[in-house]
Nucleic acid binder design. Structure first.
Lengths: 245, 245
DNA sequence: TCAAAAGTGTTGAAGATACACCCATGT
DNA sequence: ACATGGGTGTATCTTCAACACTTTTGA
């Protein structure tokens, strides 16, 4: 390593406004990894391209950033346009910029991931517009660097779900302990001990047990819970509580 | 929430190549948060703008993405141009896209953070080109959203240094236990117990103790250590070892 | 009456934390 | 001889992991 005087060019971003005119412009896209949870497994929503180029291949949903919006808005717009869903948990993931990643034109893509809670209706009904849910292990090869995006999103989801209660975004408002455990088993991709899981969750003290049972999966029925968001946030604020599973 | 058929526009990114021509283009910048460690405290390297707009204000170093490079390369170029340093640990942090973040022109900025180990020479010598090291708590107000970038970088560094041995990037090759502890105290922003720290570090078994002492900080001298990168990587590969401090 | 899922506690091991004194050396 | 930072071990507490049987009820 050596140290040298910095040439003038180092300060090019600090030039007066008109200087910017000389710089290269690029297309900025957003692509969304949409996670859902259905019947004990984590799913990702993909669409099939039915035109050239890459016709017939599967892809994440995406779109281009417009001049008057910021990336979060673009991602929400793209998601809402495809699925009709609003107020979805979304988070920026990573920006992909390989020079030839899109053979059409130099395009940089900012990946977002979204967690949505799919009702059975949505799960079956989503087939409109050649969109389809895939089990994560069974996702097909995708265009460009989209498989890489899913990999990174999955890694992020794993890490994040261990320390922040984002997992609940993937469940309906009321859920059984078993559902919650299934979800975490999907995210972590391993079996958990039922007793240890319940003990841990209960000791976190951020769930409310309802006087209501889900009778669809057993004769005996299983109690339903809801996540107590206010309680969680108060704990974080007052005691620096960290959600840790 | 409602579900509706997706309008045609949802698939705009999958159109044939010439379709892209209609989309808005933007400027893409990279900004680098450069961390260093000197005399028991974490520092960040800033430069002073000496021209309009925002003349006289402090700023991160940055530059624009060129047509034929990817973001990682742009970030390396920017860093190397200012500091003359190469082969530096860098990582993409986040992409900032508020519509008015840069009053000059619509600019999206991808922030990177870098960890460099500053020798005393570099620490004092860096004053060239109006660059200066700041203690993190004493960083001045910066242009645009640069303070926000530093906040996020700091949060990332904290998290990352707890689970990956990236902290070592901030130290010279040979270092004393005390230096390492000081570093972690800076990153975590709290005092650590000397005995517990040493016990933990030693039990990780990824340091090599040298037969060499640093005589600059005490009469007795303190043993020097080096990080054993190969051993660390072998452990990760063979036993799924996770660096955990 | 039985099949199928729900529910429930204890023990041992490992890891984290708290804590205080002697050592080596240059001045 | 003393001042300064270097170096070391143990006891307690908390957290995690392993583990199996009883309950409910519809068919």
């Amino acid at each position: 390593m050596k140290v040298s005087k910095a040439p003038k060019i180092a300060t090019s971003d600090t030039m007066p406004l008109n200087y910017y005119q000389k710089e290269d412009q690029v297309l900025l896209a957003v692509d969304c990894i949409i996670f859902g949870f259905h019947k004990k497994s984590l799913k990702v929503l993909l669409i099939k391209r039915n035109f050239q180029p890459e016709k017939g291949k599967w892809s994440l949903i995406g779109g281009f950033l417009k001049r008057n919006e910021q990336l979060d808005q673009a991602a929400e717009r793209v998601l809402s346009t495809l699925t009709g869903l609003n107020n979805i948990y979304m988070e920026q993931l990573y920006t992909y910029s390989k020079v030839d990643r899109d053979p059409g034109q130099r395009t940089i893509s900012v990946a977002y991931y979204a967690l949505i809670n799919v009702s059975s209706y949505q799960y079956d009904g989503i087939h409109i517009e050649s969109a389809q849910w895939f089990d994560l292990e069974e996702a097909p090869p995708l265009i460009f660097d989209h498989n890489e995006m899913i990999e990174r999103a999955m890694a992020r989801l794993r890490r994040k779900a261990m320390t922040k209660p984002i997992g609940f975004e993937l469940l309906p408002e009321k859920f059984t302990m078993r559902k919650l455990q299934n979800l975490y088993e999907s995210i972590l991709n391993k079996k958990l001990d039922k007793r240890n899981f319940v003990n841990k969750i209960i000791s976190l003290d951020v769930l409310i047990k309802l006087n209501e049972k889900d009778m669809t999966t057993s004769r005996r029925g299983a109690f339903l819970y809801v996540f107590d968001k206010e309680k969680y946030e108060k704990k974080v604020e007052e005691e620096g509580f960290i959600f840790k599973i």
